[in-house]
């Protein structure tokens, strides 16, 4: 593998029996991670009677493939996916740029009250969204942002605490030599940041990007509260909207939920190389 296990230590341990133990441990763990998804794929292919059958039916026969087409008939999932994609993309762009800026200021620039900002970021990192939803709703109402995508995007353009932490750590680890060279060439701090530090921070930026995409893609509470027009719905609202009050509809919702996971999984697999390296860069020395 290109991205792990290249250290001498790893090479040395190659032939120890511990390897087999490791395989066993990791294999079992991986099964625990994946098997539940397989079970819920099976659930998504059951009709209602099969879903509630006792004893449970593990492999539905015949599989109700129609659940998946029904999901698409019930609601415009293509549109919802597009909305989610737009919002998530804008959130990623905003968060990556602004968090990097702030992280850069905290890591590499003279900023009065740095410590306070850092503590504030740690504090706000822990602030649960649901706590602030009513004041924020009032705010967005006065701004005229209700039923638009702005409340779901703009907060990401104001840097997120997680992004700030990640980028600060990343920039701290970059040697000073580069910027000194650039400064000697007459670059201003923005140019140093944008042309020197940002390219060097790509893995971390990719990590932040994937995480932002993930958070935005999976958000349920805020879109539910802020979006009222069906043509603006995001994917998770679409998934939840299939829930019936009088019928669980669990098989349909499971099908929709699994479908909503697919783009995220693809993104993850594509970005994995960067992403894991970025997570490692944030694994951090302090």
């Amino acid at each position: 593998m290109p991205d792990t296990g290249q250290r001498g230590r790893a090479r040395q341990r190659r032939n120890r029996p511990g390897r087999w133990l490791a395989y066993l441990f990791l294999g079992l763990g991986a099964a625990v991670m994946v098997v539940p998804f397989v079970a819920s794929v099976a659930n998504s292919l059951k009709n209602f009677a099969q879903y509630v059958a006792v004893p449970p039916i593990w492999v539905p026969d015949p599989p109700a493939w129609s659940n998946y087409s029904q999901v698409w008939e019930r609601a415009p999932f293509g549109l919802y996916a597009w909305n989610s994609f737009l919002i998530a993309t804008l959130a990623v762009v905003g968060n990556v740029v602004t968090s990097a800026m702030v992280g850069h200021a905290l890591a590499r620039m003279k900023l009065p009250g740095k410590e306070v900002l850092l503590a504030a970021a740690l504090g706000t990192l822990m602030l649960p969204t649901v706590v602030t939803i009513i004041p924020n709703f009032i705010l967005y109402k006065h701004l005229g942002w209700l039923d638009t995508m702005l409340p779901l995007v703009v907060p990401y353009w104001l840097a997120t605490p997680f992004g700030i932490f990640l980028m600060r750590q990343t920039f701290l680890a970059i040697p000073r030599d580069f910027e000194e060279a650039a400064a000697l060439d007459g670059a201003n701090p923005w140019q140093v940041f944008w042309r020197v530090h940002m390219p060097l921070a790509k893995p971390a930026l990719a990590t932040l990007g994937v995480f932002t995409f993930m958070a935005s893609w999976g958000a349920v509470l805020e879109p539910t509260i802020y979006l009222t027009s069906p043509e603006k719905y995001t994917l998770p609202i679409g998934v939840m909207s299939l829930q019936g009050q009088f019928m669980g509809n669990d098989q349909l919702v499971t099908a929709a939920a699994l479908m909503s996971l697919v783009p995220m999984l693809l993104l993850f697999l594509l970005a994995q190389r960067y992403f894991v390296r970025g997570a490692m860069a944030s694994g951090l020395k302090g």
Binding site: T224, I225, T228, M240, S241, L242, G244
Partner: peptide, 13 residues
């Protein structure tokens, strides 16, 4: 419209 619980969650806000 929204499913039952989401509808009332949103209505209150």
């Amino acid at each position: 419209s929204a499913p039952y619980t989401d509808f009332f969650k949103r209505l209150r806000t």
